[in-house]
Write a protein that binds this DNA or RNA. Structure first.
Lengths: 234, 234
DNA sequence: CGAACAATTGATCCTCATCAAACCTTGTGG
DNA sequence: CCACAAGGTTTGATGAGGATCAATTGTTCG
């Protein structure tokens, strides 16, 4: 895969970067390709690199002592991940990054980005925007997990995932596809495969969604919103 | 209450600030005093100010549509809150800030801080450190809430709170006091007053902690760690 | 001392996790 | 191109962990 400097303009954090910076970044970067189910890095590894995902999908996860996993975020093309390492170069990755499908990413040394930040205000701002977004999302998800029943949480999860990694199936329609397995959805919403399966089956009967192997299609987002807000029994 | 510029050196984000910046901040700031149970701001208000807490304790919370509350963070003296507004001046507060006891805070206009950030790298770095810390903590708490039983979560919560807002009761000892009610602890750990009460009563019988009205004293942190890690039945 | 409010304790119930077994889908190799 | 293996999904039965509700007890402060 060939990356030209201007490709990096697709990346939010670099959208205001001068061309010479983009040149530098491309020059200093390494291309890493990871097969399906492979890992970019593990929780606890030194945070040596910062990544820009070029193709595929990557999930950021944590697991608890008994091996149960939680999906904290799913990354798609032109999104960055492992940005925390750039802030504290001596840091360790707080999450594990696993490819959901064959993926390729640009790896940039954390220390190099850290250096650039000293003299590029646009970089600081971009990263802060990113981080405030993360904080707010995690706060909302925490609140949901602490206070809502699984059906509402799952509805909220699907809606959030639709906007983050969903792909519109037809032009000019709200119908969105989310390419995740029941297990994945359970790990995002804080539940189990079984409960997710049952709930989705219910919604499919109601015509709200369509399900398939490792796939959910949202037919009626508005209906899901009603469930999420508790206006409709589930 | 009188604040001198050098007092601001106690604030992590300002520890590397030159004296003239501290002067500016003090000059530009307003002192706000809030009585117990009063509010600094509500979720959804325009994020006009950034705060440095001088005295008292403040909790940052979100509530769900049915009014159930979640405590996302408790702030004590010389910690800052509402920093997100400084990044995006048009933003709304994503949380509500309520005083747990009579409190006083320095309020600094978000737009002013935002301006300062343009030319002060130390500020950017300080705020990023703060934000990465928030992200990591929220990720860990999310994982715990999604995967651990309430007894472990409560143990982890107590240990975390001890380091964040606990006060050592005797010099040279690990005995720490946490000044929160059962209800508060429930809202931090994602549970209910009743379950928290029962669990704490259990631990008191085992000699791990001591409880009182709106107060928990950790006598045996190591014992709590064992529960948190699941090495000990609860 | 009494009012207000925090904490406790018991009884009950409900949501959802767990386990087991069968079923479906996809891709591969003969 | 079919058959089979692998792995994702469904479904039912069961039970446990906590939430909820109600009533009582304890603590603090005016």
């Amino acid at each position: 895969m060939k990356i030209t400097p201007t490709d990096l303009r697709n990346v939010d954090v670099f959208k205001d970067a001068p061309l010479e910076d983009l040149d530098l970044l491309v020059e200093k970067s390494i291309l890493r390709s990871i097969e399906e189910d492979g890992f970019f890095f593990f929780q606890g590894d030194p945070a040596a690199y910062f990544y820009v995902l070029l193709s595929g999908r990557v999930k950021l996860l944590q697991s608890n002592p008994s091996g149960q996993q939680v999906n904290l975020r799913t990354i798609k093309g032109w999104q960055v991940f492992a940005a925390l390492g750039a802030i504290r170069p001596e840091a360790l990755y707080p999450v594990t990054a696993q490819a959901l499908e064959a993926s390729a990413a640009l790896a940039i040394e954390s220390s190099f980005l850290h250096e650039m930040m000293q003299t590029r205000p646009y970089l600081n701002f971009g990263l802060m925007q990113l981080m405030t977004g993360y904080i707010q999302e995690m706060q909302v998800r925490y609140k949901e997990l602490a206070t809502e029943r699984i059906d509402r949480r799952l509805a909220l999860t699907l809606l959030r995932l639709a906007s983050q990694i969903g792909t519109r199936i037809q032009e000019d329609s709200l119908v969105v596809e989310i390419p995740l397995s029941r297990q994945d959805l359970a790990e995002v919403s804080g539940s189990t495969m079984f409960t997710v399966s049952r709930t989705l089956a219910d919604w499919e009967r109601q015509g709200l969604i369509e399900t398939g192997r490792e796939r959910v299609v949202i037919r009626d987002p508005h209906g899901l919103v009603k469930i999420a807000e508790g206006l409709e029994a589930s």
